[in-house]
């Protein structure tokens, strides 16, 4: 396809996606609204904002993670973030009981969780990159091993806490988009804004990184520093999203690969917005269907993981979807 055709068709697809995203947002805000509009709008507005933040964070972090690993079936979840989150929650319940977990100031909790998760990944990257070697696959591998460790520790603790505590904990461990705390959403939006400023002018560097280490170095990119920088950005994004709503594993894989299939060319300038829009459609549209069709009977993350799991299997069976 010529550059003009690519530009035209990507613009068209982006417009369609934006329209769909807008429709799902409007549907989410208005469908089934009863009573005072000002209450409905502010109540649903906060939750919508939380979903937009999560959609953005997951989409951007997954696409960037796949760019630096050169692999389209990896997600940042592999580096042990969600396992660490689960371990944190489990440890609190184990040490102080479920009453403490539900009683904790959510803002304090949020900041502590983000700080611990970002701190953990910074320490991990520093350790790996400081030793002179730098190998993203080593980061992934160690992340998987640590994730396994965290999961086993959580599993052990979950088995020895009281069943009542466990029920409360289990509810926490499914991502839930019923966030109502405006301050949390505000803080997250601010942090996400900072990350966006950091990545705003880096689209063409991301494109070069996509060509792999050797080519990127040959084209004059400081590959090591850039990988480290992108990993830090990813860890901030994933931590915010996890602390806000809980772990969402397959979601990133789903939206990133949908974006790759939909868009004609792989430039980040169009791929990142496309992935974000797909994420908004899935999340907000999915939540609307969940609330209006299934009447809140289940958590959205269950549906996402189910659909994401199916998609993942189809993706693997078909090889590279083209």
């Amino acid at each position: 396809m010529s550059p003009d055709e690519i530009r035209k068709s990507s613009r068209l697809i982006l417009l369609c996606l934006a329209a769909l995203a807008l429709i799902s947002m409007v549907a989410f805000m208005t469908l089934g609204a009863k009573g005072s509009w000002s209450f409905v709008l502010s109540f649903r507005g906060t939750r919508l904002a939380a979903m937009l933040i999560v959609a953005y964070a997951i989409a951007v972090s997954t696409v960037l993670f796949q760019t630096i690993t050169g692999n389209r079936i990896l997600t940042p979840a592999l580096t042990g973030f969600d396992a660490l989150y689960v371990l944190l929650q489990t440890s609190i319940v184990f040490l102080f009981g479920a009453a403490t977990l539900t009683g904790l100031d959510p803002q304090l909790m949020f900041i502590a969780e983000v700080a611990i998760m970002v701190g953990f990944s910074l320490a991990l990257y520093r350790l790996l990159f400081g030793s002179g070697r730098h190998n993203v696959h080593l980061v992934v591998l160690i992340g998987i091993v640590l994730g396994g460790l965290f999961r086993s520790m959580s599993g052990f603790l979950q088995r020895i806490i009281s069943p009542d505590d466990f029920v409360v904990l289990q509810d926490r461990l499914f991502a839930s988009f019923n966030v109502t705390d405006q301050t949390l959403v505000g803080v997250s939006a601010l942090l996400i804004g900072l990350v966006t400023i950091a990545i705003w002018r880096m689209f063409s560097v991301f494109d070069v990184m996509m060509l792999g280490r050797d080519t990127a170095v040959a084209l004059g990119v400081d590959h090591k520093a850039m990988t480290m920088r992108i990993l830090v950005l990813i860890s901030v994004l994933v931590s915010i999203s996890t602390a806000l709503v809980g772990p969402v594993t397959f979601f990133g894989l789903l939206v990133a690969n949908l974006a790759y299939i939909l868009m004609p060319a792989a430039k980040h300038r169009i791929m990142l917005p496309a992935a974000v829009l797909v994420a908004i459609i899935c999340l907000v549209g999915g939540q609307t269907i969940l609330e209006r069709v299934f009447a809140f009977d289940t958590a959205l993350s269950i549906i996402i993981e189910f659909a994401g799991g199916l998609f993942f299997i189809v993706f693997l069976l078909k090889g590279r979807v083209r």
Binding site: G70, R72, S204, D207, D214, L219
Partner: peptide
């Protein structure tokens, strides 16, 4: 430098790829 095996996961056109050769000068 051009290395031996150049595998790309990304979907790029030939002219997109060749444009990357100008990255050191134009930064995109």
């Amino acid at each position: 430098i051009l290395r031996q095996d150049n595998h790309l996961a990304a979907r790029l056109t030939v002219s997109d790829l060749v444009s990357f050769g100008r990255y050191p000068y134009s930064k995109g």
